[in-house]
Simulated assay, not measured.
Amino acid sequence: MTRRIRQRHESVHAHLYLLVTMIFFGSAFTSSKVVVSELPHEVAAALRFGGGTLVLLVLLGTTRGDSGLDPAMSWGRFLRAGAVGLLVVALPVIPEVAWTEVSASTWVNIGCLALGPTAVAYLCYYRALRVVSPSTSTVMMFTVPVFGTTCSMLFLGETFTTPQLVGALIMLAGALLAVTQGWFRAGPEREVTTASGSAIGTEHAESEAG
Rank of each mutant, 00 (worst) to 15 (best):
N109Y: 15
L19E: 09
S31A: 07
G51R: 09
Q181Y: 15
T53A: 13
T193H: 01
R77E: 05
P92F: 14
A209T: 01
A81Q: 15
T30F: 03
T118C: 02
L79R: 07
G167R: 05
L59Q: 11
M141P: 06
S152C: 11
W75V: 07
F25M: 12
V102R: 06
R3V: 08
P71M: 01
V36M: 05
S11T: 15
A28K: 14
I94K: 14
L115N: 12
R48T: 13
A98I: 05
A175E: 01
T138G: 07
D70H: 03
E10F: 08
V108L: 14
T149P: 12
S196C: 08
P92Y: 12
R64F: 07
F155N: 03
F24C: 14
G201I: 04
V144G: 00
L79C: 09
P188A: 10
V144K: 02
R185A: 08
E208S: 13
I94W: 12
I5C: 09
M73R: 05
Y17A: 07
T136D: 03
P95W: 15
A186L: 04
N109E: 11
V146Y: 00
L176V: 00
P188C: 12
R6M: 06
F24K: 08
V131H: 04
G157N: 08
F49R: 10
F29I: 11
P95Q: 12
H9I: 15
A168V: 09
C112Y: 15
L60V: 09
R4E: 13
V192P: 02
H13C: 11
A14Y: 13
G51S: 03
R6I: 14
E38R: 09
I200C: 01
G148L: 11
R80W: 06
C151E: 12
V55K: 06
R4G: 06
G52P: 15
G167T: 02
S135Q: 13
T100L: 06
R6G: 09
S103P: 02
R48M: 05
Y17K: 03
C112G: 14
S37I: 10
P188W: 11
A205E: 06
A14P: 12
G157T: 09
A104V: 04
A28W: 14
P40F: 07
V84R: 03
G187T: 10
L129A: 01
V108F: 15
D70A: 05
P134E: 05
H15T: 07
E208N: 14
F147D: 00
L115Q: 07
V84G: 05
T149C: 13
A119M: 00
F29R: 10
A205C: 03
E10W: 08
A178P: 10
V93I: 10
T62M: 09
F24T: 11
R64A: 07
